[in-house]
Design a protein around this nucleic acid. Structure first.
Length: 447
DNA sequence: CCCCCCCC
């Protein structure tokens, strides 16, 4: 039986190649939903690691133990979302090498004494039920919920499947709204939930449930949820990619998964290139954009027509590789706080990605944030890097035109071709004397 | 059962 780790193996781990058969020590082993995570220790360095759900029994049965050694047969090194440069190991195949050692292996111990650490117990020293009971005894309520009930992936939920527990992060939270209509009146709010596999679902709470859970749900935190109901999502209003939506009532169980790590895939964006925004004008569908910030306006105070309330607004101009620009109106906190941040860094031409924008028709095509819009400055995603390098190398010098007007800055009366989604506009003219931002076409044809 | 989301 081996009882040592592969020296310095963690420092050399990267995503491009798998080193065969490295041995690491398992430390900080703990359940996370239906799987276990631990820190892989080589005596010098540690890296976060996750075991597949298929190996859970190996842990329950005591074969893989905390402080024990395992040999990694197959794994991938993935980036931890939001922590640039930091990686975790997603282990797909491994085998137990040694049960728990006395302590965590530290390189000093090995180097100075050369003494091999002895296993403190034999394999199968603990029965499965012993281990499960110990873990339940020590665990917080939420973790108990996870251990007593299987955690279901969001994709597996449907209206006909009654009993489940999910483990999800709140990736968006709406404000509490009141409504009054023919069907009655009340209050309501929504959250968007994302699980480990990246599946999202919207959950809605009304009245008593809304009041009960509004403060419970906090953006970014992880929760165990059970006893909700599912129904088909109304396509017209759906904002996440899921055929169903969830309703929680006051008897639903919601427990924060305190101090548990959870790997959540990056916010999923479905970017629409600026030159393709036209098809979304005045539609209900919300879109995501990514662009280089070219300008940031001062904050303005806008009086809302319906009730006279004053709302802060700021306009920014975004450009992308389609060589088009579009104006995005930021409202409320996005105008004041994020807007100021953008203004401060405007000279560096930051890239921003915005999720859930409404496409309006002001000046042809305009974008506007809504309550649930999410803005990420210089996101750590390939699209941002690509856009930034394009902008730095050539975009800066390129002449761009506003998508709304469909005009090149130098557009003039004459003959030229432009393309939209559906038609080729072959002859047009402007009429500056009317002071209108309009094109007058003398010819167009299907593209 | 909501589903509004602001202004030019």
């Amino acid at each position: 039986m081996e009882n040592s780790v592969t020296q310095d193996c963690i420092a050399t781990i990267d995503s491009s190649s798998v080193q065969p058969h490295i041995v690491v020590q398992v430390v900080d082993l703990k359940p996370v939903g239906s799987r276990y995570t631990f820190n892989a220790n080589d005596g010098k360095m540690k890296i976060k690691a996750m075991l597949p759900a298929t190996l859970t029994f190996e842990i329950i049965s005591g074969k893989i133990q905390n402080l024990g050694l395992i040999r990694l047969l197959d794994y991938t090194a993935n980036d931890i979302p939001g922590k640039s440069g930091e990686k975790y190991l997603l282990i797909t195949k491994c085998e137990a090498v040694s049960p728990a050692l006395d302590s965590e292996i530290k390189s000093e111990t090995k180097a100075s004494t050369g003494i091999m650490l002895k296993p403190k117990q034999e394999f199968f020293a603990k029965s499965a039920s012993q281990i499960v009971n110990e873990q339940r005894g020590n665990a917080a309520p939420a973790a108990r919920m996870a251990m007593t009930r299987r955690v279901h992936p969001l994709v597996s939920l449907n209206p006909y499947h009654g009993s489940w527990t999910i483990r999800v992060r709140v990736t968006n939270k709406g404000v509490m709204r009141t409504y009054k209509n023919a069907r009655g009146e009340g209050c309501v709010f929504n959250v968007e939930l994302t699980d480990e596999e990246g599946t999202q679902i919207q959950a809605t709470m009304f009245n008593a449930a809304a009041k009960k859970f509004y403060d419970t749900f906090q953006k970014g935190k992880v929760y165990y949820i059970s006893r909700g109901t599912l129904k088909l999502a109304n396509k017209q209003f759906k904002t996440v990619q899921n055929d169903y939506e969830m309703t929680l009532n006051e008897y639903s169980e919601v427990e924060e998964a305190v101090s548990e790590e959870m790997f959540i895939p990056e916010t999923k964006f479905n970017f629409v290139p600026i030159d393709e925004l036209g098809t979304y004008v005045n539609q209900r569908e919300l879109i995501d954009v990514i662009g280089v910030v070219q300008s940031v306006s001062p904050t303005m105070s806008i009086r809302r027509k319906s009730d006279g309330e004053m709302i802060p607004k700021r306009d920014i101009t975004l450009a992308d590789e389609t060589k088009k620009t579009v104006v995005v109106s930021l409202w409320n906190d996005l105008a004041t706080d994020l807007g100021q941040e953008l203004l401060d860094m405007a000279d560096k031409y930051p890239v921003i990605a915005i999720k859930s924008l409404k496409v309006g028709d002001f000046q042809g095509v305009s974008l506007s944030t809504i309550g649930k819009s999410d803005v990420v400055v210089n996101p750590d995603i390939p699209e941002a890097a690509k856009l930034k390098s394009w902008y730095d190398s050539e975009g800066k010098e390129t002449s761009m035109s506003a998508i709304g007007s469909g005009m090149s800055p130098s557009a003039n009366n004459g003959s030229r071709s432009m393309y939209s989604d559906r038609v080729c506009l072959s002859h047009f003219t402007t009429n500056p004397s009317l002071g209108e931002d309009k094109l007058y076409f003398s010819a167009l044809e299907l593209a």
